[in-house]
């Protein structure tokens, strides 16, 4: 049988409703299911049901494994970016600017500036996730979304449970490490946004030409 455009949409919708939320994974699965069905002679919906009864579990397992692989790949890319010249320059510049800032403000104010920067950047990442969950206007790609999910989860954890994160150190000598720690965290957030944009471009180029 020939699978029509509407039937392709039906397969895609079925997979999405079954929990395959990322478009890049669905494209491949939809093609696989459609190709299998094109070799059958019966009614599309009967053959589709029969196929899903036998293979749905495997497809969903494959979806989970693919998501994990995409997540690991995205995290590897993030670390690569953090250790790249650009990433190290961002961390170094932040570090230098923070020490320069100490000439114009006291340490408590600097901590406050860090807090604000951290908070605003986290809002950008969390907002991105919430936007994708609530609306389906933007396409959801596995690597990009998984990276945002992991980083926002970890950083929200640091924010909520890391009670010492924004506390100024008691010893003045500890300022160096405190500022370094804050700069690394801000760099991670900035590079997460940069990495997500890189991945997004890659997905769009691959799937949308």
């Amino acid at each position: 049988m020939q699978v029509t455009d509407n039937q392709i949409k039906f397969i895609d919708q079925y997979l999405e409703n079954s929990g395959v939320k990322y478009l890049d994974i669905r494209y491949e699965m939809t093609d696989h299911v459609a190709t299998v069905l094109e070799e059958k002679e019966g009614d599309f919906y009967d053959e589709f049901k029969a196929y899903m009864v036998l293979h749905k579990k495997e497809l969903l397992e494959s979806n989970n494994k693919f998501s994990k692989i995409a997540r690991n790949k995205a995290i590897k890319l993030l670390f690569g970016n953090l250790l790249s010249v650009k990433g190290l320059l961002i961390t170094g510049s932040l570090f230098g600017l923070s020490f320069l800032g100490l000439n114009h403000m006291n340490f408590e104010k600097l901590v406050y500036v860090f807090y604000l920067t951290y908070f605003v950047l986290l809002l950008v990442i969390s907002g991105f996730n919430i936007y994708h969950k609530r609306t389906k206007k933007e396409k959801l790609w596995s690597g990009t979304h998984k990276l945002m999910e992991v980083v926002s989860f970890i950083l929200n954890g640091v924010m909520i449970f890391g009670t010492n994160t924004f506390k100024a150190p008691k010893e003045t000598g500890d300022n160096f490490y405190f500022i370094l720690y804050q700069c690394v965290i801000v760099s991670i957030i900035v590079m997460t946004i940069v990495t997500s944009r890189q991945l997004m471009k890659k997905y769009k180029l691959r799937y949308e030409g």
Partner: peptide, 25 residues
């Protein structure tokens, strides 16, 4: 598919996407 994606993740496979009929392959 997990095997293909693992190999792709390891940099051993490259991917090309093409429109075939009414879907992407």
């Amino acid at each position: 598919y997990p095997a293909l994606h693992k190999l792709e993740g390891e940099g051993l496979l490259d991917v090309e996407v093409e429109k075939v009929g009414n879907r992407l392959r």
